[in-house]
Design a protein around this nucleic acid. Sequence first.
DNA 1: CTTTAAAATGTAATATTATAACATTTCATT
DNA 2: AATGAAATGTTATAATATTACATTTTAAAG
Lengths: 162, 162
Amino acid sequence: MTDKIDNKLVQGKHNHHRCIDHALQVAEQVCLKKKLRLTKIRRQVLQLICENHKAVGAYELLDLFREFDPNAKPVTIYRSLDFLMDIGLVHKIESQNAFIACLQAEKQHKSVILICGQCKNAFEIDATAVYENLFALSKQAQFEPQYLTLELHGLCVNCQKV
Amino acid sequence: MTDKIDNKLVQGKHNHHRCIDHALQVAEQVCLKKKLRLTKIRRQVLQLICENHKAVGAYELLDLFREFDPNAKPVTIYRSLDFLMDIGLVHKIESQNAFIACLQAEKQHKSVILICGQCKNAFEIDATAVYENLFALSKQAQFEPQYLTLELHGLCVNCQKV
DNA sequence: CTTTAAAATGTAATATTATAACATTTCATT
DNA sequence: AATGAAATGTTATAATATTACATTTTAAAG
Ligand SMILES: [Zn+2]
Ligand SMILES: [Zn+2]
Ligand SMILES: [Zn+2]
Ligand SMILES: [Zn+2]
């Protein structure tokens, strides 16, 4: 399984095993704390999402998952995604119908997802100030803000040259 | 056709005929300027989107459109939506797979869409500062920003009470 | 006024994304 | 061991969107 990881594909050079391990450890912690069950299926789905930093579609994930269970059905993936999203371990990229693992699920965060249109890598950076700004703006318009969809499309540093 | 408009449904009280007329006039102007063809079908689709300020799905739109042409197919709607979105007359709300008419298509604008989770009304307010902030932030992360998906979910003023 | 080529539309089929409904199994607790 | 809630299995289907190719409409040229 680990030999599928292709470090050339991820944003910047880094030991990607650490990302996966960290994400899985955080997942354990979060579930322990909330008394939720990180079952085998859920862990496998999370692991697959973590295999690179690209946004991954549910059916793409299903194909990958079928190496664990050839008979897996869409609903299995969607159920796991729902579970993982509910507890903040996975984010949905609405503009792509795709999913990424959150790399900072252990702490509360208000972030923008930067999505490279070329390589599809997606990563989060803090945008707390932006949230505050927008919430304030919307309140001025007598709107009661609840949650924000914030996705910035562009080119990552690796894809800008040429 | 006009007697379908229900002003109780729209954000605040206003003469909704003006919204439709304005949107259609702007559409004419934009197409004239860009030498594009605002065909009957495209105008009808835009008109239907304008009939209220709610986000409307493509198939919902198709149902409405079938009062013009009972044999209309999904692709007709999607083609018109693509055309209207390309020239900024319509925006897609990614988090809802739904569409709204832009009320300020005549001028360049950087806005956030405020979406009421209760009544589904959606309207835009200016967010130029937020764009600049985010673009600057992302550049610091060596990301080249291109376009932003910015959708704020919450409750509109009419839906906050009780 | 024809010819022509591009744009728009018609038509059918299909791809992609996501959920509903109900049966069965697993698991923690009693 | 009994119990009930949570998770999973299984089947079907809903909802959203696109592809491919035929035909018609339109604007512009000759
Ligand atoms: Zn996150
Ligand atoms: Zn890239
Ligand atoms: Zn707009
Ligand atoms: Zn409302």
